[in-house]
Amino acid sequence: MSNTSRVWFITGASKGIGRILADALLADGHRVAATSRDRAALEKSSPEANGLLALETDLTNAASVKAAIDATVERFGAIDVVVNNAGYGQQGTVEALSDAEYRRNFEVNVFAPLQVLRHALPHMRRQRSGHIVNIASIVGIQGGYAGWSSYAATKFALAGLTESLAAEVAELGIKATVVYPGPVRTDFLSTGSLAVAEHSIDEYTEARASLDLHLNQLDGKQAGDPEKVARLIIDAVVAAEPPLHLFAGKIANQLAEAKMSGIRKDLDAWREASAATDFPEGL
Rank of each mutant, 00 (worst) to 15 (best):
L255Q: 14
A153L: 06
E168P: 11
V133W: 02
K221S: 12
V169S: 06
Y145C: 00
V133Y: 02
A209I: 02
P113T: 08
A209H: 07
Q115A: 15
P181V: 05
T186Q: 02
Q127V: 07
P243S: 08
V184S: 00
K228H: 04
L244A: 10
R185L: 01
E241R: 15
F156I: 04
I234R: 15
Q142I: 02
A197W: 05
P113Q: 10
V238K: 15
V139W: 06
A153W: 03
V237R: 07
L211R: 12
V178P: 11
E163N: 10
A207N: 01
H119Q: 15
N216P: 06
Y145F: 14
R128A: 14
N216V: 06
S210A: 14
A236R: 06
A176Y: 05
L244C: 06
G220Y: 10
E203A: 01
T177Q: 06
I174Y: 08
K221M: 08
V169H: 06
A176D: 04
A146E: 03
E198Q: 15
G224R: 01
G143E: 02
R128V: 04
D225Q: 04
L211Q: 10
I201T: 12
G160F: 13
G192T: 03
H123Y: 14
I251V: 14
L172R: 14
Y204N: 00
P226K: 03
I141N: 09
Y180N: 11
S129W: 06
T205I: 07
G130V: 07
A256I: 12
Y151T: 02
W148V: 10
W148C: 10
S200C: 04
I132Y: 10
A197I: 01
L189Y: 08
E206F: 02
K228A: 10
L158W: 10
I132F: 14
L158D: 09
G249Y: 03
K155T: 03
L213G: 03
D219V: 08
